[in-house]
Amino acid sequence: MTLSEELILHQKINLPYRYTAGTVTETFLEGLTERTIRGTRCAACGHFSVPARPFCPVCSEHTSSTEDVEPLGHLESWTETPHESGSRVFALIRIADADNVALHLVDADPNTLEEGMALEPQWTPDPEAEITAIRAWRPIRET
């Protein structure tokens, strides 16, 4: 299907956006600047989401009030992907006693990871209102 005389135009669409976080996500992201993680509990069905979110994923109720949670995660799954920096380890992490899991990075040798392993967040020195305020999660070392 490939012909030598094919004309291929190289273009790039540049589309900057300003994403409005909305009240609940804003409360979550602002919490990160204080090294605090927040969730939302559905008043109708009790489903507990971390990170905080404006609607219950189970029953669609508006979930407006947030709760600060313990900065403790448990590893549900992980995957190592090739990257220009070597590799990255993405993970699904159940934070505190959430009913859902969250995507983030893990800073550890993937060969040492186990399902259910306890994790703690590694904060950046001066956390901003972005998910990257947590640089990555890492296994909690036994003391």
Partner: peptide, 27 residues
């Protein structure tokens, strides 16, 4: 396609989701 507030900045793609799901499915 990822949520712009909580997930997109982490630079995931379909393969990341598949890897996370596949590990659980195989395990």
């Amino acid at each position: 396609a990822f949520d712009p507030f909580i997930e997109r900045r982490l630079d995931a793609d379909d393969d990341v989701v598949a890897g996370l799901y596949a590990r659980t499915a195989f395990a």
